[in-house]
């Protein structure tokens, strides 16, 4: 408390900024993964399950191997497997991707809790953070500027995806498949394969998001590790209009909202601060209402997406 007093009320925005960066990383990875999947014309609601399984797998492998990065790799692999499974089921006729997504979410959570029991006690190595606050004397500023390597990776990934959708054959292929199955077939693409691979890649990113949860912040494995980030990220993609760069800003916004509660708590607001823990959920609802319009269709929505058809 005494150190907070040094910069007074400025501690709140600073804590929110630091928190935004810290809390946004899983949002960022899951939403980029979902963005990739949805751009190919398929929706994967199972990313919440993938996130939790990724958290468990990442933690377990990091503990067993002693390397946090091996954990991240394992989480990505596990996520890709979940994505492949989702994509494989969805290629059959008459299968609804939303229903499968919900089933996959429950499956991922169930498997994670089952295999994760032995890893609740042990302590796995953390992911490294890079300190960007070395120039400052202020401990809070230094704390806020402790930025995890995965966050930087995510920022790079958002820029990369944006470029990929615009200027690579793979990116254009994904957009064609997402916008019109018929047009894709007419130019000789295989929509099912493109969607399968996009869903797998999206799952891998969600898995990495999970590894961040268990290996950095909060930094341990337990069954309550995710508070719905996987699901909120789906809403976030809609809010970000399927644009990876907007996904980055939206993830930071959601992260900031998530950090509001702890930040207020840290400056000594003791009553009602827990209401602010609900900020991300209120924000999700509010933004979706604000972003909707009774007159206009969602702009930028992939044409083949089952929620916007």
């Amino acid at each position: 408390m005494s150190s907070s007093a040094d910069i007074g009320i400025w501690g709140v925005p600073l804590a929110i900024l630091g928190g935004a960066i810290r809390v946004s990383t899983p949002f960022l990875f899951v939403s980029l993964g979902e963005c990739l999947t949805e751009r190919s014309g398929r929706i994967n609601l199972g990313l919440e399950g993938t996130l939790i399984f990724g958290a468990m797998a990442g933690y377990a492998i990091a503990y067993e191997s002693g390397s946090a990065w091996f954990g991240v790799l394992a989480a990505a692999l596990a996520g890709a497997l979940f994505g492949l499974f989702h994509g494989w089921i969805c290629r059959f006729k008459g299968v609804n991707d939303i229903a499968i997504g919900i089933a996959m979410m429950l499956l991922g959570m169930g498997l994670a809790f089952f295999f994760g029991k032995p890893y609740i006690q042990p302590v796995a190595p953390d992911l490294p953070a890079i300190s960007f606050g070395w120039w400052s004397e202020n401990p809070q500023l230094r704390a806020a500027l402790q930025i995890n390597a995965l966050f930087l990776l995510g920022v790079g990934l958002a820029i990369f995806l944006h470029w990929m959708f615009r200027a690579t054959r793979i990116g254009l292929t994904i957009r064609v498949v997402g916008d019109s199955t018929d047009a894709a077939r007419a130019i000789g693409l295989n929509p099912n394969r493109v969607r399968l691979l996009s869903t797998a890649a999206g799952g891998a990113l969600a898995g990495i998001g999970g590894a961040y949860l268990s290996l950095y912040y909060p930094g341990s494995w337990n069954e309550g590790i995710s508070s719905g980030q996987g699901l909120m990220a789906v809403a976030l993609v809609i809010f970000a209009r399927w644009n990876p760069i907007y996904c980055l800003w939206a993830a930071l916004l959601f992260g900031g909202a998530g950090a509001l509660g702890p930040a207020l708590q840290s400056v000594g607001v003791t009553s009602g601060y827990y209401l602010f823990f609900a900020a991300p959920y209120v924000l999700t609802l509010g933004l979706l209402i604000l972003a909707s319009s009774p007159d206009k269709a969602l702009e930028g929505a992939p044409g083949e997406l089952s929620i916007t058809k």
Binding site: A167, T168, R169, I170, L172, T173, R175, V176, D179, S180, D182, A183, A184, A186, I187, G188, G300, P302, G303
Partner: peptide, 24 residues
């Protein structure tokens, strides 16, 4: 059979069998 959300240039390019992997 044009893809609605792609621009004209993108539509022409992606319909080519030999579209380059990275597009300049």
């Amino acid at each position: 059979t044009l893809v609605p959300s792609l621009t004209g240039a993108e539509n022409l390019l992606i319909s080519r069998a030999d579209a380059p992997a990275v597009i300049s």
